[in-house]
Structures are given as structure tokens and as C-alpha cells.
Write a protein that binds this DNA or RNA. Structure first.
Length: 470
RNA sequence: GCCGAGGUGACGGAACCAGGUUACGUACCCGCCUGCAGAGCGGGUUUAUAGGGGUUCAAAUCCCCUCCUCGGCUCCA
């Protein structure tokens, strides 16, 4: 089936047709590395991670590029406060960012590109903008002249006249108040590079288009980011790139993720509700966080409450339990029972349902529901039979792994931990007591093990144990 | 002021674009299973689609009005 994607630019779902057949080029705005990444970043980058995984699952040859803003006012400001070199500070937080991404299981990005390592490309793009008359030089730097670009405001659907109105502290050197900076002239104590317009550093928006042009070309398929970037950042990117290339559109599909709130409020340090990824990962594992985020459509806002994550945690545990149970079931090699035949059909239906949901603008909550449905059908099998056809079991596990894998879920191998001899003896002893129907003594052992953090469960397939979860 | 998102059960959250069983998950209750517990399965949780009007055989879905919440317009994923 064709993938349908909601395009923020047209505000409609459109059939996904990459520019060159099976090759897909995607750019997602990366972070400004001046502090630890927070749950808002996690939400956005998990969303694009799943989108990337889905495109690859569908057979597209995806190149996924992310920039890293390592030169920026905020970095410089923070560096001054810390009395640290700005580039060093940026490298430090970039390192933390990569670690956080890895912890969250985000592994789809082909290339990270630092702004500071693309100064020649940035300068070159600014040069071409000046040559074409879209940019001009002032005492403070180089600016983009938005009056020369008639589509300015199209992505955010704002009237350029309207945008003029509420600007703070107009710069007298600028032709139009909403003109944005391409090159900022050097100030004391700031990192700088040489340029035809004097020493200085690039503006924020030009980093992205220079990097994107280098690796993806002047026109590409998907550009993503948080909804907060629509204006002015993405608007500026369109202005820059389409002015330089003369080609429209710069990007076929604009994707924007919904905002993350914390208890109804925007997450902000000043409100004291700023949650970093690393802090969240101390309490919840990555799969739980992923399930939490993916339970909501990527475009919808999410309100973060601890209770909601608890819900996600339980749901994930149940799903994982089902998968683990299949693994532990005795395997037969003979033919399928009636119910197994039914189940085989349900596997296919679930996969189809999952695929259709994902094809419809990456509807992860709906796709998840098919995974849960399949799990329920599998659990019915456990109630009916003590063993399972091996081929079917393998297929079930493979399906859960593969579809779950698109979400970054169900990837943990059951821990084949051996219990200490002493504890195993206790379990053996309890088994004998149970056979003798000495329930009291058996329960005492179960209680004793529980106190040691071992939960015993009697199942039709025998005694199982697990560690108490925190 | 301008632009935008949204208000669905106890809670989270789909379905809205292409009108016709309120999916799925969590919690709680009952039943089955079990020696018990847990897990699982089945059923249920008083009127769940903000309110009002309209179109229609039929509205959560389309149109209009009202109320409320949140975000952007300055750095932001």
C-alpha cells in the first residue's frame, strides 16, 4: 500500500512519492547542544526514528541526516557562565546527546553534521544569496531580505504583513524588521571564522540549509522537526534554499511532531518541570518510554504524567510476557491443531492491520492495537494447549520481534539467568510439597523466595520464576 | 491582536481527511481457570464523543455558533 503522509505545508494527507523512486532523503532538525536533552527531544526523535524504521521496512532506501547546532547564542552564553570554551561545551553536550539517543534505541540516523564543520558551505550559500540579491550586508552582519521572497510565511500560513507587527527591538540596520540573520559579525569573546564579510559566525537557519544542500541536494523528500520550529526556523529555511536554487519546493513533505507538556504546562526550566532524558531513564527503561510516546499519534500533543508512564509500563510487561511465554512453551514438530491454524491466519491479519495503520501517516497507536490483539490470541492458545507447533512458535516470535522492532520494543532477550543452587533446591522442594498437597509448607517457600525478590508462578506449563520488578 | 492545536469512558488514547458496530491499553469489579496467589481468558464499570443548532435515512466524523484548555507570533524538538 502507498504510504500517506500529513504534510504541514498543505495541511493534508498526501500519497508519499519520493523524488527518485525508492531513494528517500530525510532531514530532521537536531538539537542545539548547550544542555542535557529533555523528554521533548526524546518524543520528537523517537517519532522520526520510527518513521525511518517504517520507511526502511517498506523497502525504501532512506538516507536520514541530522544536523547538530554547535554554534549558537545559547551555547556562547552558557559557556561564558561556565567559563568554558564554547566549542568544548558543545562537544560535551553533543556526547551526552548521542548517549541519550543510543539509550533510547534511536539508531536510524545515517549522518550527524555539525554546523561548525560546514562553515565553507555556509559561506558559499550566503555568497550566492547576496549575488542573487536576496541578502545584504550591514555593519552587524548579513541578512536575508524577506521582501524579496514572496512565499515567506507560506509554511506557517502567516501573512508577512502580520509578521511585521509584533517584533521586538527593531534593528535599524535591517531593511525589513523580519529579516533574519545569515552571518553575525564577531563580538568579543565569541568563536569566529573568516568570511568575505569579516570575522563572525553563521546564523541559525543557514546552518541547516547549507548542510542539507551538501548531503541531500537542493530538493529532497522529507524535512522534520518539532512543531515549534515551523516559525521562524523552517520558514527561513525555505526562503534561503528556494532563493538559492530557484527550485520549488525545497522539500516535498514537511513533518512536525506535537509538543510535549508536563502536567499541562510547557516544559521549561523556569517552571521547574524540565525532565532530562537521562533522569527519565533512571526511572523507566527505554522501551517503556518508547511505548509511552508511541501510544499517542506523533502529531498530537502529549501531556506527561508519571501515572501514564506506569500504564505504559504495565502494558509493555504484558506484551513481553506473552512473547516470553511462547519461547518457553514446549515445541512439537507435527501438524497444526485447529486453534493453531486459526492463529496462523490471525498473524497475517495482525501484520496487515499493523501495516495499514503505519501506512496511514504513521498511526502508531492503531498499529500497536494490532500487536495487542495478536498477543491476546496467543494467550488464548496458552489456555488451550500445553505445547505448540514449533514452526508456528517461531513465526509468532519473529512477528513480534519484527513489528515490535519497528517501535524499538520487545527487543530484549529473556534473561537466561541461572538461579543459585540454594534457591533452585527450594523451588524443587516446593514442587514435591505441592505434589503431596502440603499447601502450607509450599506457600511458606513461595513467601520466602518472594522476600528474596523471586516471584514464583505456577502455570500449566510448570513453575516459572522472575525477579520482582522495581 | 494575529496564527495554530485540542476538548472522547475511572484514566490514557484511536477512529474524524474518505459520515453507518466508541478500537486498543491501564485501573477496578464479577466469572472461568487455579489448592491458593499470579498470569491468562470472558463479561462488566451508572448517559464516554464539551454545549447548542443545522445538513442527512444515519454525525465523534460535515457546516454554523458558544464555552473551555493549550501552544506559536522572541531562543526552543
Amino acid at each position: 500500500m502507498t504510504i500517506r503522509i500529513y504534510n504541514s505545508y498543505t495541511r493534508k494527507k498526501e500519497d508519499f512519492k519520493p523524488i527518485s523512486n525508492k531513494k528517500v532523503r530525510m532531514f530532521v532538525c537536531g538539537p542545539t547542544v548547550y544542555d542535557f536533552s529533555h523528554l521533548g527531544h526524546a518524543r520528537t526523535y523517537i517519532a522520526y526514528d520510527v518513521i525511518a524504521k517504517w520507511l526502511r521496512y517498506k523497502g525504501f532506501d532512506l538516507f536520514y541526516l541530522m544536523n547538530i547546532t554547535d554554534i549558537d547564542d545559547k551555547i556562547i552564553k552558557r559557556a561564558k557562565e561556565n567559563n568554558e570554551d564554547p566549542i568544548k561545551l558543545a562537544r560535551r553536550f553533543e556526547e551526552y546527546f548521542f548517549k541519550d539517543m543510543a539509550s533510547l534505541g534511536i539508531d536510524t540516523i545515517n549522518l550527524y553534521a555539525r554546523a561548525s564543520e560546514h562553515i565553507p558551505e555556509i559561506i558559499d550559500q550566503i555568497k550566492r544569496l547576496i549575488e542573487k540579491g536576496f541578502a545584504y550586508v550591514t555593519k552587524t552582519g548579513v541578512y536575508f531580505d524577506v521582501s524579496k521572497f514572496e512565499d515567506y510565511g507560506k509554511l506557517s500560513h502567516q501573512d508577512p504583513e502580520e509578521l511585521k507587527r509584533h517584533r521586538i527591538e527593531p534593528d535599524p540596520n535591517k531593511r525589513n524588521e523580519q529579516d533574519f540573520s545569515l552571518w553575525k559579525r564577531r563580538k568579543e569573546g565569541e568563536p569566529y571564522w573568516d568570511s568575505p564579510w569579516g570575522e563572525g559566525r553563521p546564523g541559525w537557519h543557514i546552518e541547516d540549509t547549507a548542510i542539507a544542500e551538501k548531503y541531500l541536494g537542493q530538493q529532497y523528500d522529507i524535512h522534520g522537526g518539532g512543531a515549534d520550529l515551523i516559525f521562524p526556523h523552517h520558514e527561513a529555511e525555505i526562503a534561503q534554499m528556494e532563493s538559492v536554487s530557484g527550485k520549488k519546493p525545497m522539500v516535498r513533505y514537511w513533518l512536525h511532531t506535537g509538543f510535549l507538556k508536563v502536567k499541562g504546562k510547557k516544559m521549561a526550566k523556569s517552571l521547574g518541570n524540565y525532565i532530562t532524558i537521562r533522569d527519565a531513564l533512571k526511572k523507566y527503561d527505554a522501551e517503556t518510554l518508547r511505548l509511552f510516546f508511541l501510544s499517542t499519534y506523533y502529531r498530537s500533543p502529549i501531556d506527561f504524567y508519571e501515572e501514564k508512564i506506569e500504564q505504559a509500563k504495565r502494558a509493555l510487561e504484558a506484551l513481553q510476557r506473552t512473547v516470553d511465554n511462547i519461547k518457553e512453551l514446549n515445541k512439537r514438530v507435527d501438524g497444526l491443531t485447529e486453534y493453531e491454524k486459526t492463529l496462523e491466519k490471525i498473524i497475517e491479519e495482525s501484520r496487515r492491520g499493523f501495516e495499514d495503520a503505519m501506512d496511514d501517516d504513521f498511526n502508531t497507536p492503531l498499529a500497536l492495537s494490532h500487536l495487542f490483539n495478536l498477543a491476546r490470541e496467543v494467550n488464548k492458545l496458552f489456555n488451550k494447549q500445553k505445547d505448540v507447533n514449533k514452526r508456528l512458535a517461531d513465526k509468532l516470535i519473529a512477528t513480534f520481534k519484527e513489528l515490535g522492532g519497528i517501535f524499538g520494543l520487545l527487543q530484549k532477550e529473556g534473561i537466561n539467568e541461572e538461579l543459585p543452587e540454594e534457591l533452585r533446591m527450594l523451588i524443587e522442594k516446593r514442587k514435591i510439597l505441592k505434589e503431596k498437597k502440603d499447601w502450607k509448607a509450599a506457600d511458606e517457600i513461595r513467601k520466602r523466595l518472594e522476600d528474596l525478590g523471586i516471584i514464583l508462578e505456577d502455570t500449566p506449563q510448570g513453575v516459572k520464576w522472575k525477579r520482582k520488578s522495581s
